[in-house]
């Protein structure tokens, strides 16, 4: 029972984590918040799904389609909602991304209908049985892909020139500007990275639950944002850890306390974390100087 819940929780947490690192990247670099990340997740999922159906079950190309479409959507979002408001109040980008999220949901609904589409392939056929714990193939797949992507993200951020520039920009945007880093390009890269991870995540989540629908990104993105905040906005490791622990906490709460209160418990814990350490468990405080 316990290991089963933890495995479920880790799968859930992996799905949160791929979105959470995106939130962390964007919020960390701009100190602003985006509300259309869940819709980028959703259009990634849809473009992946329909590519896979059209090509008769080609998963790698489906993932590629999810990456391309969501990355493009992310770059576009940055252009429309964030670039015009750099160094201004985070309110305008927040409002624009709210508008984008409403219209993206409506647009997909108009194109594909409101009904939930299943994933056309049975992904849970393979099962690994360890004692009385059952791990399905898709769970292994979700966790595996997430770990792979996280390692790649880590390598990208810590061992490439772009990654260094990214970290410099999120430390101090003005200073990075002065140092000759093209902050516009760096911010675009951050959005691109965050969005392609969201797109892949969308396809994974859609396949895992075998459910694709226009509002599929709403609840999960709020959870992922909570997870990122929980671990520390601005810190990639923090966001991963926060998202994974949120998944496990939820899963345990559902198993041992009450399924209907698992979300209440998750959000309440987040609020308490915010109160004790507003920057999250692993985040750094930005102090205001007198």
């Amino acid at each position: 029972m316990l290991t089963q819940q933890i495995i479920n929780g880790l799968t859930l947490g992996s799905l949160y984590a791929l979105l959470a690192v995106g939130f962390s990247l964007i919020c960390g670099i701009l100190n602003m918040i985006t509300f259309s990340h869940g819709e980028i997740f959703m259009i990634g999922a849809f473009s992946g799904l329909y590519t896979i159906i059209a090509l008769g079950g080609n998963l790698p190309l489906g993932l590629a389609a999810a990456v391309v479409v969501s990355a493009a959507a992310g770059i576009l979002t940055e252009r429309i909602a964030f670039r015009p408001f750099r160094n201004e109040s985070p309110l305008s980008p927040a409002l624009i991304t709210i508008g984008l999220s409403i219209s993206l949901q409506a647009g997909i609904l108009l194109l594909f209908g409101a009904d939930t589409k299943p994933f056309p392939y049975n992904v849970s056929a393979h099962k690994f049985i360890l004692g009385n714990t059952v791990i399905s193939g898709i769970e292994v797949f979700v966790i595996g892909i997430s770990i792979l992507l996280m390692i790649m993200l880590h390598l990208f951020i810590h061992y490439t020139r772009w990654g260094l520039a990214l970290r410099a920009t999120s430390q101090r945007i003005e200073a990075a500007d002065i140092m000759g880093i093209s902050t516009n390009r760096i911010i675009a890269i951050a959005f691109c990275t965050a969005s392609l991870l969201a797109g892949i995540d969308g396809l994974l989540a859609g396949a895992y639950y075998s459910a694709f629908y226009p509002r599929m990104g709403v609840a999960i993105s709020l959870k992922a944002l909570a997870g990122a905040t929980f671990g520390g906005i601005g810190s990639i490791q923090g966001a991963m850890a926060g998202a994974l622990s949120l998944g496990v906490i939820e899963s345990l709460a559902a198993g041992y306390i009450s399924a209907s209160y698992r979300d209440v418990i998750a959000f309440t814990i987040l609020i308490f974390v915010l109160l004790i350490k507003p920057s999250g468990l692993l985040g750094q405080m930005r102090e205001e100087k007198v």
Binding site: I80, A81, P84, S92, L95, I96, I98, G99, L100, S101, I102, S103, L104, Q105, A106, G107, L109, L110
Partner: peptide
């Protein structure tokens, strides 16, 4: 009908811009 939400969302975007 169904286009309402789409227009509503875009309206918000345009207002802010």
């Amino acid at each position: 009908q169904d286009y309402r939400e789409l227009i509503y969302g875009l309206t918000i975007v345009l207002i802010v811009l």
